[in-house]
């Protein structure tokens, strides 16, 4: 049965699916934006907290370096996000990594998005994983995903909806996230978002730190500067009152520094009230993006190159 299962999966590799099509379209557009730039660039690598939360034009204006927002979807999980980043980075680049907290919790178990995107658009990524992770990916592939693969549901680019290359501007930032674009559905989601307890859910030995260490080493050997900051996140009372949560946020910068990452900033400084968000606890609305970008610029200082020395 297992052999049959593997054969079924192999039969639909590289078949595009609609659920991961928008991610592919966005990465394709952003990769093109990057490749069109000669010389060094400031590249923002993360999930969609960066996509929605950072005004790259402002960074470019401040630091006089062409800046592209390479943030797409944290649901792909850390290894795949870093893999995509490695494809586009080159010597002389500065990489800003405001990674979502979920990325630091990666423990080797893939999710549907990571599986789906790998099969449809990035099968070579599979071979960079450890044997255990490869087994997990094959074993945890849902039946419906295999069927979707055979249906080839994502042959055409996505041109409708909030997510997609059609809503990415010339710097890779998300458009159409002004408050006035929030419908009843988005308002309802924001109203009812519950806290995510990363402190409680953090695995004892997250594989994420291994991947970050490896990525940082790769960056250094390729003459790429990496700067890690906290991500945008919705503030909730429990993050300030629960011991496990407090410990998680307080120790994260320290743990990052202990493995040699240049982590600057305090997670609590980038937690914002509910009414600044668009449709998830990581997506600021366009108005709030300005506030966050200003705060980020204050953290990074007047000369970002100083952080790279």
């Amino acid at each position: 049965m297992s052999l049959l299962w593997v054969m079924l999966i192999l039969g639909q590799i590289k078949n595009p699916t609609i659920t991961s099509r928008w991610v592919y379209d966005v990465y394709t557009k952003k990769s093109k934006l990057l490749s069109d730039i000669n010389g060094s660039r400031l590249v923002i690598v993360a999930g969609s907290n960066a996509l929605f939360g950072i005004d790259s034009k402002k960074l470019e204006k401040r630091y006089h370096i062409p800046t592209i927002n390479f943030g797409v979807n944290a649901g792909l999980f850390l290894p795949l996000v870093l893999y995509e980043a490695k494809k586009v980075l080159r010597r002389g680049d500065i990489v800003l990594l405001p990674l979502e907290y979920s990325m630091y919790l990666y423990d080797g178990e893939p999710n549907e998005q990571m599986i789906g995107y790998t099969y449809s658009f990035e099968p070579s990524f599979f071979w960079t994983l450890s044997l255990k992770e490869q087994f997990e990916m094959i074993w945890k592939t849902p039946f419906s995903r295999v069927l979707e693969g055979y249906m080839k549901t994502g042959t055409k680019p996505i041109t409708k909806g909030l997510y997609g290359a059609h809503h990415i501007d010339a710097h890779g930032d998300q458009t159409h996230s002004l408050k006035r674009y929030m419908g009843g559905f988005e308002k309802d989601i924001i109203k009812h978002i519950k806290p995510t307890l990363y402190g409680k859910d953090e695995p004892k030995k997250a594989l994420a730190w291994k991947y970050l260490k490896e990525f940082d080493k790769w960056a250094k050997t390729h003459g790429i500067c990496t700067i890690y900051t906290p991500p945008v996140f919705m503030d909730q009372k429990i993050y300030h009152t629960d011991k496990k949560e407090i410990n998680f946020y307080k120790t994260l910068p320290k743990r990052a520094k202990e493995i040699g990452l240049k982590f600057i900033g305090n997670p609590y400084d980038f937690m914002y009230p509910r009414d600044m968000f668009f449709n998830t606890d990581y997506h600021l609305n366009a108005e709030a993006r300005q506030i966050h970008t200003d705060r980020l610029l204050k953290l990074l200082g007047s000369d970002i190159h100083k952080l790279c020395r």
Partner: peptide, 10 residues
């Protein structure tokens, strides 16, 4: 039909 089939899981 094929769309229905794709959506079989949902």
């Amino acid at each position: 039909f094929w769309k229905l089939l794709y959506h079989w899981s949902s």
